[in-house]
């Protein structure tokens, strides 16, 4: 029988014990990166709304229009990835497994601060690729603070070195984020309703329209085109967990 991990419930300690670690890529020359994205999150009336476009590019080539950039890490955590997909998806997979491993082995869910730091650690472990410029990831994290009553969804954003910050109202990442931040800031200051007061339908419509505008100014952001049934990845986190908006719901919100 294998000895217990040095830190109870730590999946990465278990991996180290079995001499398995998340793969590290050692690049000596910069390959063509597959990246560029627009993901954003904002507080709305029922919780936190998270949106992401679905395009992946390599240079000026569109690789695909069907990428899922908003990933459920567990039943109360969402990761919106911006940056190099190879690194970001692997990071998400490691976090997914480690959060569930902790919950099952310790018979309680990992706290929100611990999840926030786990992502920070994953980014710090990726420092080598970040400094080489071939594995940069700048994600958003949305999680539920169960210590608050009622439970409160929160938004965190990171720099590629792992520094974490809580966003009071909204946050955005990726190549289209400048446009998105401007729209969100405008709506926050002058809009009616403000994002925080939007209903689910209003938030859905607003998120889709924001992505449409972002795609106007950033070729690496996939737009939303209802006429060709091309939509976005939209999820929201409320006190009862995560919900994904279907293509039908997105089409209805725009009608």
């Amino acid at each position: 029988m294998s000895p217990p991990p040095t830190i109870a419930g730590d999946f990465f300690a278990l991996l180290a014990q079995h001499r398995i670690s998340p793969p590290h890529v050692h690049a000596s020359a910069a390959p063509v990166e597959t990246q560029a994205t627009t993901v954003f999150a904002f507080h709305f009336a029922d919780g936190v709304f998270v949106a992401g476009d679905r395009r992946a590019t390599a240079g000026n080539v569109i690789v695909t229009e069907t990428v899922e950039k908003v990933i459920e890490l567990d039943s109360t955590s969402l990761l919106a990835i911006a940056g190099v997909p190879a690194t970001a998806f692997e990071m998400a997979r490691a976090l997914q497994t480690s959060f569930e491993y902790y919950r099952r082995s310790q018979l309680q869910a990992l706290s929100l601060p611990a999840k926030v730091r786990a992502l920070s650690r994953a980014l710090r472990d990726n420092l080598g690729l970040t400094l080489q410029g071939v594995g940069v990831v700048a994600p958003l994290f949305v999680g539920l603070d169960n210590t608050a009553l009622p439970a409160r969804p929160q938004i965190y954003f990171y720099d590629p070195l792992g520094a974490q910050f809580e966003a009071a109202d909204f946050s955005a990442s990726g190549s289209g984020s400048t446009t998105v931040r401007s729209i969100l800031a405008f709506q926050q200051r002058f809009g009616s309703p403000t994002p925080a007061r939007m209903t689910l339908r209003e938030a859905t419509r607003f998120a889709l329209q924001t992505l449409m505008v972002a795609a106007e100014f950033d070729s690496a952001t996939g737009g939303v085109a209802p006429e060709s049934a091309r939509f976005a990845t939209l999820k929201w986190l409320g006190q009862d967990g995560i919900r994904t908006l279907t293509v039908t719901e997105q089409a209805e919100a725009l009608s």
Binding site: M1, L14, R93, A94, Y101
Partner: peptide, 17 residues
């Protein structure tokens, strides 16, 4: 508890690798 932990470890290692 030992059996439970053993199974959880094995399942998550398999799922990850």
């Amino acid at each position: 508890e030992r059996v439970r932990q053993m199974l959880i470890d094995a399942a998550h290692l398999e799922a990850f690798t």
